[in-house]
């Protein structure tokens, strides 16, 4: 680890990522040479497949209560892993820069923007997505409150809003409508359902089932 911080580890002129790729491509070509007849080498696709193996890293995650041993490229974000490789498409991409909150999930019970973290950084962690929030057919009280109070219109930001709302309640940041407005401001709703979202969270906080 400390070695990485040495100034000498700063790459020279060539882009670090590109240099690494060149290396991988060469090394995978060497591997291919050892394993396959020369004709196969010419097939770029084969080269890509081997390159892909080299570029992936193992990662163990527990997602919605299910333990998973995965192999992912280090550059894959948690969001893209969930959506594109695990078909958990309830978590949404709204900006990819941690500015909108649509991708909010829980990691070990804390809310985070899944677009701002790489999947490999979450080794051994427990991830909960919107798909894992309800107890079978029994919706989470926050999910029910969002329906009752119409805490959405188009529904696109809703999974992120709900994951954030659940965490907001757990954190003890739902003491008043004003506090909820502050602590829910990391989740943008362009349809403007904020008033209803605040009412839904207050309703759960107060344990009420009133409309």
């Amino acid at each position: 680890m400390p070695q990485e911080n040495k100034p000498s580890s700063v790459p020279p002129k060539k882009d670090k990522q590109e240099a690494r790729r060149d290396f991988l491509k060469q090394s995978s070509a060497v591997m291919a040479l050892a394993l396959a007849p020369p004709l196969v080498l010419k097939a770029a696709q084969h080269d890509e497949a081997i390159a892909a193996v080299f570029e992936k890293m193992p990662v163990n995650l527990e997602i919605n209560g299910k333990k998973m041993q995965l192999s992912v490229e280090p550059r894959v974000t948690l969001l893209d892993l969930l959506r594109e490789q695990l078909a958990l498409t309830g978590t949404k991409k709204g900006c990819d820069h941690g500015q909108c909150g649509a991708c909010t999930v829980h990691v070990n019970g804390q809310r985070i923007n899944s677009c701002l973290t790489l999947a490999v950084m979450q080794e051994g962690k427990k991830i909960t997505t919107i798909e894992g929030l309800s107890n079978g057919d029994q919706l989470h009280p926050v999910q029910e409150a969002f329906i009752r109070h119409d805490g959405f219109q188009c529904g696109y930001c809703t999974p992120g809003q709900i994951m954030s709302a659940v965490a907001c309640l757990h954190e003890g940041h739902a003491g008043s409508p004003e506090q909820i407005r502050e602590f829910m401001s990391g989740n943008i709703c362009r349809c403007g359902a904020y008033d209803n979202i605040v009412n839904a969270i207050m309703d759960v906080k107060n344990g009420g089932q009133t409309a």
């Binding site: 594109e84 498409t89 919107i130 999910q143 696109y156 809703t158």
Partner: peptide, 29 residues
């Protein structure tokens, strides 16, 4: 009447499929 949305459940569970949530076989990016 203030009826709840008929698609509310799909929207709060992540079950609502928007265009990018579809994954036809052999899809490229």
């Amino acid at each position: 009447q203030p009826m709840d949305r008929v698609d509310g459940r799909l929207k709060v569970t992540g079950g609502a499929k928007y265009f990018a949530d579809h994954q036809p076989a052999d899809m490229q990016f």
